[in-house]
């Protein structure tokens, strides 16, 4: 069972308090009607499925209830960092620093 840091509670909590929320940084288009069928399909169904660094959403569902973002390595299943929803994704250089 993983230990996950909630960026709102600023505390590490066991995985059972959290729910996974799929890939992060996929914003719902402001006006979906302007998208072609192909673009809308990509928005709905096509995901990165990264091997390695993966940006994903979690929700501290049995805690503060907030959604936040996380960077997890899908090979080692280790979290690199977590950050509040709405913040930009960390750069590769920043992540490299955090992995050390």
């Amino acid at each position: 069972m993983l230990v996950i840091r909630c960026p709102y509670c600023e505390a590490e909590r066991p995985e059972v308090e959290f729910a996974y929320g799929g890939e992060a940084h996929i914003a719902r288009p402001a006006d979906p009607s302007t998208l072609t069928d192909e673009q809308w399909k990509d928005h709905l169904f096509i995901r990165t499925n990264a091997r390695g660094t993966h940006f994903e959403r979690w929700r501290h569902v049995h805690g503060c209830g907030r959604f936040f973002n996380a960077v997890r390595d899908t090979v080692s299943d280790k979290f690199v960092t977590t950050y509040k929803a709405g913040l930009p994704r960390p750069t590769e250089a920043e992540l490299e620093g955090m992995r050390k």
């Binding site: 729910a19 929320g21 914003a27 719902r28 959403r57 929700r59 569902v61 209830g65 907030r66 959604f67 929803a85 709405g86």
Partner: peptide, 13 residues
């Protein structure tokens, strides 16, 4: 409720 919270928190905060 989880779905509503998701949209409210992350799409239309």
């Amino acid at each position: 409720l989880a779905m509503m919270e998701d949209y409210l928190q992350t799409e239309w905060p």
